[in-house]
Amino acid sequence: MQTILGAGGAIGIELAKSLTAYTSKIRLVSRNPKKVNDTDHIISADLGERAQVFEAIKGSSIVYVTIGFPYKLKIWQQQWPKFIKNVIDACIEHNCKLVFFDNIYMYDPNFLDGMNEETPINPPSKKGKIRVEIAGMIMEKVKKGELEALIARSADFYGPNIKNSSILTEMVFKPLSTGKKANWMASLNYKHSFTYTPDAAKATALLGNSSQAYNQVWHLPTAKNPYTGKEWIETIAKEMGVKPGIQVASRLIVKIMGLFIPIMREMPEMMYQYDRDYVFNSDKFDSHFNFKTTPYLEGIKEIVKSDY
């Protein structure tokens, strides 16, 4: 049995599709789980409760953590460390492997241009400090030989059918689709990588089912040569057949946007990712696996075809 904790999000749904290449025994766990594949096992659980985490993991060979707690600092501080401790304890007790889907908030902001698995850890944000803590909890148990686990890191992600967890969807696709100007934070002139969600999910499934991938950190496959903010907006607008209206959002404007767009409320402390080149390197993955990464233009075309 391979289990996904947080199965209803953008990554969890795509991961459930991808795991069918390796097993027909897939367990989806969330508050209101829905089958992605006909053979899926579903468990409704409050993953904030230790006993329910243990019950959800019981009988699993591999556990994937793709849960996304509400994007609020206080909730992250309260929930992430407690949840990860429970998952680690349950995986150790039930002798199962752990695959943790992570982001890059923990990296030193001075090294975001070409960031890889060796990029210095020095988060400038409070959310980043939480990511350092929980990744450290996992790798500490790995180093002690108590847990077999891997960390799969993604850049900001984009993809079809993402409702409210992608900055690119909220800032560009949705406004342009309703005749409004696209938004971008800080500056239009810097490159910004985005990881395509179907690629991220396929790669996470591949890592989870590759014994040699464990006990280390991996960057998930991401297209090279990312667009600048201006190029992202112009390319998306062209594919949508609309004018590329643009509004650059200052810190004040981002705060105002947060009154109407929940994900934007917590973005001011993350704006450093948009005032410099943000280029994600996945050469380690690319050199180990035969994987075709989706080009940016192809990903944009697929999103335009979908319901965002």
Score class of each variant (00 low, 15 high):
G241A: 13
Q273F: 11
K284H: 09
G245P: 14
K243S: 12
K284Y: 10
K255V: 09
E234A: 10
R251D: 01
F260Y: 03
P262G: 06
F260A: 08
Q273E: 12
F285L: 14
D275Y: 05
I256H: 15
A237D: 09
D283E: 15
L259T: 07
L252C: 03
P262Y: 11
N290R: 03
V242D: 08
V254D: 13
R265F: 08
E266I: 02
I256V: 11
H288Y: 02
D277M: 05
F289Q: 01
N290E: 12
D277I: 11
G258W: 08
G258H: 05
T235K: 15
V242M: 04
Y274R: 07
M240K: 03
S250P: 13
R276I: 01
G241F: 09
Y274D: 01
D277T: 12
L259Q: 05
K284W: 00
I233N: 14
V242N: 02
V242L: 10
S287Q: 04
K255F: 06
V279E: 04
V254S: 03
G245W: 01
I261R: 01
D277N: 11
I261G: 14
S282K: 11
M240Y: 04
Y274W: 15
R251M: 09
T235E: 15
L259H: 05
F291E: 11
K284G: 08
F260V: 14
G241M: 09
D275M: 14
S287I: 01
G245N: 01
R276C: 13
D275A: 13
K238V: 08
Y278M: 11
E234L: 07
V279P: 00
F291T: 00
M267N: 13
S250A: 04
I261E: 15
D275W: 07
F285A: 03
I236W: 06
E269H: 03
E269S: 00
G258C: 02
M267T: 07
Y274M: 06
Q247T: 15
R251C: 10
R276E: 11
D286A: 08
I253N: 05
A237M: 05
Q247Y: 07
F285I: 03
E234D: 10
E239P: 02
R265N: 02
